[in-house]
């Protein structure tokens, strides 16, 4: 599904990302972890070519995205940035905007059908005709995810989708994303700060350190040594109620 080979990105003369290699299968959720400023968000923007990478190739579903037109990329990759602006328009219209890469002169019946089905799937029907500038952070985030889904992407990129949400909303959002990924056999790459939340919802993990991949794999790579090396925090990793959890040893 997603194949990243030798990706590198420089900001002015500073190397931000170097030699990033990884792959992702359909139906899998990948969590990108690492300290602030390590380049997690930059990696997402490189993958959907908002920041064209300096080196490397990115294949989505067998196609090299760097050689595609912008709107062709948008048909394959749905991107939910950390923040989106909210004007006085309904959730329905905000989600309909996700059809932009597919829209020619005007909206077709099919566009409405897709929007309606995603609204039902994300249980947004009660909110559909409310103005998004009157919505809470969690509701707005679900609208943004719905907008990315109506793009009918093969790959979803979410930049810290849970950062400003309460515990319940965090779980809801990630549950929705995982459900959509499994049901539609797409892939998702999510940048996160909360390792424990990642451990509940992701299938694969990448720890970034100094612009490189420090560790890459399944649950088994989330061990005290990795946490210590990447974050500089000594931690214990334990199993609780069937979930792996990371508990810092320091106060």
């Amino acid at each position: 599904m997603l194949n990243v080979e030798g990706l590198g990105f420089n900001y002015k003369t500073r190397k931000v990302l170097e030699q990033i290699h990884f792959g992702l299968k359909p139906g899998e959720v990948l969590a990108i972890l690492g300290p602030n400023g390590v380049g997690k968000s930059t990696l997402l923007r490189c993958i959907n070519t908002i920041h064209p990478p300096a080196t490397g190739t990115i294949f989505v579903d067998g196609e090299e995205v760097l050689s595609l037109e912008k709107h062709e990329v948008a048909k394959r990759i749905g991107y939910v940035p950390q923040r989106s602006e909210a004007g006085k328009l309904t959730a329905y219209d905000a989600i309909l905007l996700g059809r932009k890469p597919h829209i020619g002169w005007n909206i077709k019946e099919k566009d409405h059908k897709i929007v309606e089905s995603i609204i039902m799937k994300l249980e947004l029907d009660k909110l559909a005709l409310r103005y998004i500038n009157e919505m809470s952070g969690g509701e707005l985030q679900r609208v943004a995810i719905a907008r990315a889904l109506v793009q009918e992407p093969k790959l979803l990129l979410l930049d810290e989708p849970t950062s400003s949400l309460d515990l319940k909303k965090q779980l809801e959002i990630l549950r929705t994303v995982r459900q959509v990924v499994k049901d539609n056999r797409v892939s998702a790459v999510i940048t996160m700060h909360d390792i424990n939340l990642a451990l509940r919802f992701a299938d694969r993990y990448i720890f970034l350190k100094d612009g490189n991949i420090f560790a890459h794999g399944g649950h088994e790579i989330v061990v005290p040594e990795t946490i210590e090396q990447v974050y500089g925090v000594s931690a214990t990793v334990e199993e609780l109620n069937g979930f792996r959890i990371v508990v810092p040893n320091e106060e």
């Binding site: 908002i50 709107h71 991107y79 940035p81 923040r83 004007g87 890469p101 907008r147 793009q151």
Partner: peptide, 9 residues
């Protein structure tokens, strides 16, 4: 909807 969202679209 924001520059980032627009570029993503």
């Amino acid at each position: 909807a924001g520059d980032e969202t627009a570029k993503g679209l």
